[in-house]
Design a protein around this nucleic acid. Sequence first.
DNA 1: ATAACATCATAAACAAAAGTTATGAACTTT
DNA 2: AAAGTTCATAACTTTTGTTTATGATGTTAT
Lengths: 318, 318
Amino acid sequence: MNFNISQLKYLMALGTSRSFSAAAEICNVSQPALSMAIKRLEDEFGIQMIDRGTSPLSYTETGEMIASQVKTILEEVQALELLISDLKNDDLSGEIKISVIPTLAPYLIPLFLKKFETKYPNITLVIEENTTASTVKKLKSSELDAGILVTPLDEKSIVTHPMFFEEFYVYSHSKIERSYVLQEELDLNNFWLLEEGHCMRQQMIRLCELRDTQKSQLKYNAGSIESIINLTDTIGGMTIIPEMATWRLPAERKSRVTPFVEPSPVREISLIHHKFTTKSGLLMALKGVIEEVIPGYMKIRENAQRIDISPPEPFNQN
Amino acid sequence: MNFNISQLKYLMALGTSRSFSAAAEICNVSQPALSMAIKRLEDEFGIQMIDRGTSPLSYTETGEMIASQVKTILEEVQALELLISDLKNDDLSGEIKISVIPTLAPYLIPLFLKKFETKYPNITLVIEENTTASTVKKLKSSELDAGILVTPLDEKSIVTHPMFFEEFYVYSHSKIERSYVLQEELDLNNFWLLEEGHCMRQQMIRLCELRDTQKSQLKYNAGSIESIINLTDTIGGMTIIPEMATWRLPAERKSRVTPFVEPSPVREISLIHHKFTTKSGLLMALKGVIEEVIPGYMKIRENAQRIDISPPEPFNQN
DNA sequence: ATAACATCATAAACAAAAGTTATGAACTTT
DNA sequence: AAAGTTCATAACTTTTGTTTATGATGTTAT
C-alpha cells in the first residue's frame, strides 16, 4: 500500500467541504493537485470513495467507512504532533501526580523515589494508590497525570508505555519440594485471593483457570499482598505473589516461594497517561528513572506467558 | 508538519532491528535511504530520536515516547488496509449478528427491517437487545458483528460510525401549556427514570443535572420506554423520552409530549463494530439502509446539545 | 597494534512524486 | 443560450525520495 498523510487529509477536507475546489482551499493547494491526489488514492485502494454524481458531492458508502478509519488515523497523527511540540518544551520542572496500583506500589515506589528526587530536584512527585478503574477515570478527568499499572488496557484516549514484566510466584504454607510448580498443581481448595477490585485478582483467577462464579471454592479475600502472605503463613494453603514482593522477604519466608514452570506467567507493567497530556517531558523523565532501577532481565520476556486482564463487565451503559 | 508513513515505518523497523542496515533490509530500501529518511524525520520534529552512541543503537528517551505514538498510528494504518481489502471483497451475502439498545430497538428495528430484507435477500440478519456494556463485550469476543447504540464510547478496538441524532422530549402526565420546556423546569420530585443499566438513564440524569447519589429524589425505575410512559400516565409526574418513541403515540398521548428549548438535547446513535471485523461490506449495507429510512433532519445537528455518556465506574481492575 | 570488517553518514546522480498553471468539458443557474 | 461553477486533464516545474559509490568511525581478531 502506498499513500501519504496529505492524501488522507485531502480526503477528510473533501468530506467536510463536499467540494474539490473548497477542499483544495482548506488544504492550501491548487484544485487539480487535490483532484489528482484523491484519484491516486482511489486507484491505490481500488475503491471509489467519492460520488461525483451528487451535488454537492458525497462519500460513497464504502468511502464513508474508509473516511471513518482515516479520521482516527489523523487523530493519532495529531496526537503525535502534540506530543512532539510538548517534548520540545524541555523545561523539566513542575508537578506530576501519579497513581500506582496497590499490588505494586509498596515494592516499586521505594525503588525509584530517592533516585528520582536526586536526579530531578525541580519535579514535585505526588503519588497515590488507586485501582486501575479509578486511575483511568482520574486520568480522563485530569485529576492525575499518569498511572503505573498492568496493561494492556484498550482505552482510546490513554497512551501506554510498557516498562517491564513482572513474574508471578507461588507462595505456600509448607515448603514445596520440587523447584518448579505446574499451574495444574495449585491447590484451589486452599488458595488465597485478593479482594474484588484488584486487577491482580483477575490475573490470579485467570492463572487458576477458574471462573469468577466458582469463587466459592476459594478461601477468603485479602486486601494486600502482605495480607495474603500473612494469611498463608498463619492459616495455611497457598497463593500467588508478584516477583517484586519476594525481594524483601526474610530468608525463611523466601524458602517457601516457588517459581512456575516455563513459560512463566508474567504481568506487564506500564506507565500510562492521557493522550493529550502536557507533561510528556516530566513523565518521560519518570519513566527513564524507573527503567534505570529495574533489572534488565525484567524488560524482555520472549517466551513468557503474559496474563492479560479482561474487563469482567465494562461500564454501566446501554 | 511534514512527514510520511514510510518514515514512520522506518522508525519502527529501527526500533526492532536496532541497526540502520538491518532496518533498511526489513523495509526493502538501501541503507542510505533509511538513514536519510530518519534524519529528515529528526530534523522535522526537531528532536533526536535515535541514540547512535550505544551499540546496538537505541531510541533516546524522547524517541521512545514518540515511537510509542508512532506505533499506534501505524496500527490504525494497518486497520485501514485491512478494512480496504475487506471492502473490496464485495460479496454481499452471509450472516450478521447485531445488537440494539433496548431504548432504541422497538422503534428503530421495524423501520429498516423489511427494506433491508428486500434489498439484501442474501444477508441473514440476527438481532438481539443488549446493554452497551454487554454489546461491547460481545463485540470484543466476536459473539456479535455490530452494535447500534449511543456514542461516543472511547474504546480502542471498536470503530464507531455515527448515523443520526435523536432528540429528547418531555412526556408529562398533564399537558404542559407552553410549547417549550426549559431544563430547569423539570419537576424532579415527580420524575420517572429507567432502571440501572440503561445508558439513557445516565443521559436522563445528566439532563436533570442531578448526581447519581441524589437519585432518592427520583421516583421508581422502569425497564423500558413503554413502561415509563405508562407509569407517567397512571401515576403522574413527568419523564424524558427519545424522539422515535413519540412517533407512534396516539394523538391523545402525543399532546402531552413537549420539546425542550433550543439547543435541544440529543443523543448520537452509531453503528459500531470491532476494528478487525471481516464483515465491513455487509455492515456498510446495513448502515446504508438505516440511513435511508432515517429522516434527513436527524442527520445534522448543528446547534444541538449532545448528551454524552460518561462511564460511571469503569471496569473492575487494579 | 593493525588488518579486516562492520556500520553509518555523505555526495552525486537519477527517478518518482506531488505540485502549479493553463485550459477545456460538463453541468447549473439565470 | 450566455455566464458561471466545478471538476478533469495536460504540460511543465519543483520537491522529495532512492540508488550507487565512497569515506569516516568504531569494533573484532590475530
